[in-house]
Write a protein that binds this DNA or RNA. Structure first.
Length: 506
RNA sequence: GGCCCGUUGGUCAAGGGGUUAAGACGCAUCCCUUUCACGGAUGAAUCACGAGUUCGAUUCUCGUACGGGCUACCA
């Protein structure tokens, strides 16, 4: 067993989209692994057939690929520790469950779902609204602890469905050191006898995570804070099965909160921001949850934003590339408190990355968006020049459409309302003369601007009075880069064409 | 209800006995620009509360409150 190599794992269950908290867990796993020249292992938890969603596994993989967080080992790229789907490892888990039963650390329980329900109803009181299957009730149930050995044997031979439950010891202190929270301790009496192996022979998370982490030689495990309460079960399992000295180091990450408590996919629809990495359509409900990618986020910004939601390097730096994050990430600077997701700040990150990255790195993605809006891009060189010119005024990739559509087709509507109040014959004559003069003017922004202003002054107009109309002729509205830059980009012919179109319609 | 985790401006957060309590997002005002942005400047706004320890607590301790998680043959 290689005890020196860092191996971390992320284990999603293919039950739907991949939300912010999930991606951040992947990210921290990834950063920690790479920081320590280790492996990032992706395992799939597909043992719950009732919740498994077709296509979700591929979706998870696509999200990670988009975000640039591809695992070193996964069902799609197996390493030496496969298989990586729990359903394909089914036969492995049973022997460990049996071993626990043999050693008296777990037991067989025959209780039907109805009997469990009845138990919960019977024991329910105001003080204890949700009774657990624990040491106080297990000797009242139908299991190998209460039934005579002969009857247990008979039931098993008859093929009676059963589960294997861990037998939590009485009143023991069970603790471990969390990389983020320090010492965490629980009283074993307060933890219930969790099911380890289900009636269908599949393991629950509790058994699978311990067995897989051992067999896959995982050295460090990052997971959400919601796992903290069941950690004593896992510690015990490690103690019983493989020895505490082999147990990975754990870090329980804080949750990502929405505007009202924990972040849910409903928040996305409610507040108008994405919560999943990529678009996800629930096949059952046929319900679309929007993703960051489709909303127009760059993967660089997405990763950066997520990394800073619960971690910082202690300096004032906020913009980190993935490589810098790998270099600087440290688990001891991860917060223990939950962080509320702020969409405005997320957009700011995207804006910064849009400015920072060369347009060539995202031109293809923007081109797809244009194509989707029925604007054909034929000249890629021209397209990238346009993007370069307007990238500072865009926040999301989708903003490029509104900001740049006029570079590719003449405005359908002119903002006449902004021009007409001060429009007069002198201006009309001025622009007609400009069209003529343009024919003999060198087509370069500075010269164009100087000439234009001179002509205005000569015509008895203030340059400022005619700049706005000129802009609206070319753009259609009051926005965009410097108007002479636009004119040069459009070319002499197109510029004149748009001026004439405007003058004919005002 | 029980158990566990958490709490510095609206949000992300630095700071870990003495500070004018950083910085960023957002917001406001101004400058730049006769567009919109970018950029620059300025401003409003914070240590949940109560005890204790101390010459001195945002910082340490204990309570309280609040928020969150778990309490499934789900992960």
């Amino acid at each position: 067993m290689n005890n020196n190599k860092v191996r971390v794992r992320f284990a999603p269950s293919p039950t739907g989209g991949l939300h912010l908290g999930g991606v951040r867990t992947v990210l921290y796993n990834y950063l920690f692994a790479k920081r320590n020249q280790g492996d990032f292992v992706l395992r799939i938890e597909d043992t719950d057939q009732t919740r498994f969603v077709e296509g979700a596994e591929q979706y998870i993989y696509d999200c990670l690929q988009w975000a640039g967080l591809e695992p070193d080992e996964s069902p799609l790229k197996p390493g030496a520790f496969g298989p990586y789907r729990q359903s394909e490892r089914k036969s492995i888990y049973r022997q460990y469950a049996d071993q626990l039963v043999t050693n008296g650390q777990a037991y067989i329980a025959f209780d039907t779902p109805e009997e469990l329900e009845k138990m919960r109803a019977d024991f329910k009181t105001e003080q204890n609204p949700s009774p657990q299957y624990d040491r106080t009730v297990r000797d009242k149930m139908r299991n190998s602890l209460t039934l005579p050995a002969a009857e247990v044997k008979e039931l098993l031979e008859k093929g009676t469905p059963y589960v294997i439950r861990i037998k939590m010891p009485d009143n023991e202190r069970i603790g471990f050191t969390d990389m983020i929270r320090g010492e965490v301790e629980f009283n074993s009496s307060l933890v219930d006898d969790k099911v380890l192996l289900k009636a269908d022979g599949m393991p629950t998370y509790h058994l699978a995570v311990v067995v897989d982490d051992y067999l896959m030689e995982i050295s460090h495990a990052f997971r959400g804070e919601e796992w903290l309460p069941s950690s004593p079960v896992h510690v015990l399992l490690w103690q019983y099965l493989f020895g505490l000295d082999k147990m990975p180091q754990w870090a329980h990450l804080p949750l990502i909160l929405g505007p009202n408590g924990k972040l849910s996919k409903r928040d996305g629809a409610k507040y108008g921001f994405p919560v999943f990495a990529m678009n996800w359509t629930d096949p059952a409900a046929n319900e679309l949850t929007e993703g960051f990618r489709e909303k127009g986020f760059l993967p660089e910004a997405f990763i950066n934003m997520l990394a800073l939601l619960g971690w910082n390097d202690g300096t004032e730096q906020e913009l980190f590339s993935k490589e810098e994050l790998v270099e600087k990430f440290s688990i001891d600077r991860v917060h223990s408190g939950g962080a509320k997701f702020d969409y405005e700040k997320a957009k700011w990150f995207n804006h910064e990355w849009l400015k920072k990255l060369p347009v060539s790195s995202y031109a293809a993605a923007v081109k797809d968006i244009f194509t989707g809006k029925d604007i054909e891009i034929s000249d890629d060189i021209y397209f990238e020049k346009v993007l370069e010119l307007i990238k500072e005024r865009c926040t999301l990739l989708t903003d490029f459409v509104d900001q740049a559509a006029f570079f590719f087709k003449a405005p359908e509507n002119f903002d006449f309302d902004s021009v007409r109040p001060k429009w007069n014959d002198a201006k009309l004559q001025f622009f007609r003369s400009v069209i003529e003069k343009f024919a003999a003017t060198e087509w370069e922004p500075v010269l164009l601007e100087n000439s234009f202003k001179e002509w205005a002054t000569a015509a008895g107009l203030k340059p400022g009075e005619v700049m706005m109309p000129f802009r609206i002729m070319l753009v259609g509205g009051k926005f965009g880069p410097h108007v002479f830059d636009i004119a040069v980009m459009l070319g002499r012919e197109e510029t004149v064409k748009r001026m004439e179109l405007f003058l004919n319609r005002i």
